[in-house]
Design a protein around this nucleic acid. Structure first.
Lengths: 184, 184
DNA sequence: GAATAAGCGGAGTGATGACTCCGAATATAC
DNA sequence: GTATATTCGGAGTCATCACTCCGCTTATTC
């Protein structure tokens, strides 16, 4: 399979960028809207991503990979406790604009494709590393296992998004949460 | 305005019941599905609830009122701390099947109607009472204010729903959360 | 600077779903 | 029991949206 023609490569990233923006705003947005924002024809969108779900998955995968990279970056840092809490806080802070895509896929009842699945696994693994290190450093209580901590991450993100929290309330909420997670 | 005819009254509750079930399962369900389950014609659904949003709102209002009643009931109880945590836990436990309706409305970008708005306010007020009493009884930390606690309630509900938690993980998650809320 | 393969745009197409119309049915009033 | 106002059902209507078809354009190759 030969490399993409230059204009095609361009269009691909324009479509992805547009899709990220459009679906971030409202996950039920139509493919036309994405095409309009990307300034390409609808057919072009569908040529690059055969179905709407494929497009959503591509955007989701991108996001998950970015989060994973951020987690890995933080894991290399000195203070494991700070790394963990920083990551947690950033995910929640960005959730507002960035959570919608996952929702759309869930709403579609889709069995998520391989790429997205792998990206998700990668991200969770990186987050798991952060958690482990924070526990080992005694900054997190030892009995906090991955599943419930991950559920809290997702929940806090969704809660913050749904309620449209101000930054202050969000940080107060996280304080309560973090106090429950810290070693006493 | 005269009272509804007997069959009409019947149909109304059948529709509401069916809608609760159908939309609980999947918020994007079509109105036809509701009609089928309620065993009435589509037109009947639309006669009682002029738009789909009206129907969603009616169901949502019902739920909020029930939650409010539950909160009031618990507030009359002896142990304010237990009352607060019990309510919190129940909301989260039921969230899985019962949260979807709010989502659907948010997805529709609807400005929620008066009834639902009032029901929401009533529910939040009752929850606020539970919170106040638990704080006064010194079982909750004094600096936990309503907005962030409410955000945690919503977040935990969504997190639990989204992640499809097992009951065990859910209770472990709530333990972490509650530890953050308790007076130390 | 042709030749040609790769890519593009936008007007279709078919399915779905919210909502309406109107003739048939029935609860209520007398 | 009859009259009639109310309610019902389901076959339409119309808009939206995912996705396709195909004639045109353009990047690449020699």
């Amino acid at each position: 399979m030969r490399p993409l023609r230059a204009d095609a490569r361009d269009n691909r990233v324009r479509i992805l960028t547009a899709a990220e923006e459009v679906f971030g705003r409202s996950p039920n947005a139509s493919t036309d809207e994405v095409a309009k924002l990307a300034e390409v024809g609808i057919a072009t969108v569908f040529r690059h991503f055969p179905t709407k779900v494929d497009l959503l998955e591509a955007v989701l995968t991108l996001r998950l990979e970015r989060l994973r990279d951020r987690a890995i970056e933080l894991a290399a840092q000195d203070d494991p406790g700070a790394a963990f809490f920083t990551f947690f806080e950033q995910v929640v802070a960005e959730a507002a604009s960035k959570l919608a895509i996952g929702e759309a896929l869930i709403a579609a009842g889709t069995v998520v494709g391989e790429d997205a699945k792998q990206a998700g696994a990668g991200m969770r693994e990186a987050f798991g590393q952060l958690l482990e290190r924070a526990k080992q450093s005694s900054q997190l209580r030892g009995d906090a296992e991955f599943p419930e901590v991950y559920a809290l991450l997702i929940g806090a993100s969704r809660g913050a998004t749904a309620a449209g929290l101000t930054p202050e309330v969000r940080s107060r909420m996280l304080n309560l949460l973090f106090d429950g997670l810290r070693r006493r």
